[in-house]
């Protein structure tokens, strides 16, 4: 018996686009072929635990971003201690942690991307560095210059080298870099998990909306504890070079 989760259709409801997510149990390949669906999200044999290799990818947990202004500092303080603990527990279980590091590109053709704030993210600077609390020596740092963590860099190669199938996306901001990286990860064939208490934005309502969107379109939203429980249950194992 195979359980298939899929998006059946997209529709307008109350001025919003809504993706209809469904799952079915099928016995034969014929039924699978006849499914009326847009995108298959996942499939697994009922009763079987399929171990999937995963990695945590954090977005923009950097000094300049975390200390941008008072509201941001407050938002980061609210989520960082538990998230740091989550990262430590996951590392202890062999889950690799990859930090996306936004770096200022002096040649960025977008003229509006050369503000004083953007220029704080100069490569090698303290401002651009990953927060001490979340960064360990074993972690991998991948630089990026755009919102999506996959844009024109080697993140995909890094994950592929570790045979990663599931990307656990955390960090900030939920509605920009986390959300776009989630979309890009899906398009590249990764399963996306987003811990609702492992992402942050200056405005809580932005995180709420981003989580709704990610749950609808590209991934599964769980808590950090639920994801850690998946690791303990053996459903998620750390990505590893072969």
């Amino acid at each position: 018996m195979l359980e298939i989760q899929f998006f059946q259709k997209i529709e307008f409801l109350q001025h919003r686009l809504v993706a209809v997510k469904k799952s079915v149990m099928v016995k034969t390949r014929k039924v699978f072929k006849n499914l009326s669906c847009l995108t298959v999200i996942s499939y697994k044999f009922k009763g079987e635990n399929i171990m999937k290799r995963c990695a945590i990818v954090t977005a923009d947990l950097q000094n300049a971003a975390a200390n941008k202004h008072a509201a941001r500092i407050k938002a980061v303080e609210a989520f960082l201690p538990e998230h740091t603990e989550f990262l430590n527990k996951m590392r202890a279980k062999g889950i690799p942690v990859v930090h996306l590091q936004q770096i200022y590109d002096p040649n960025d053709p977008r003229k509006y991307k050369h503000t004083d704030y953007d220029k704080k993210f100069i490569e090698g600077s303290h401002e651009a560095a990953i927060l001490d609390e979340v960064c360990q020596e074993s972690d991998i740092i991948v630089q990026k210059h755009r919102d999506s963590g996959f844009y024109d860099n080697n993140l995909h190669d890094v994950l592929q080298a570790m045979n990663v199938e599931v990307v656990i996306l955390t960090g900030m901001q939920s509605q920009i870099c986390v959300q776009t990286t989630a979309a890009d990860a899906t398009f590249r064939g990764y399963e996306v998990l987003v811990p609702s208490d492992g992402v942050s934005a200056t405005k809580p309502e932005d995180t709420e909306r981003a989580l709704d969107w990610m749950q609808k379109y590209v991934g599964t939203v769980k808590t950090q504890k639920e994801i850690y429980d998946d690791v303990l249950a053996g459903e998620l194992i750390g990505g590893k070079h072969t």
């Binding site: 755009r146 990286t181 398009f187």
Partner: peptide, 10 residues
Amino acid sequence: IREGLGFESR
């Protein structure tokens, strides 16, 4: 493409 949103190849 302008902002690197991840949809540009799709």
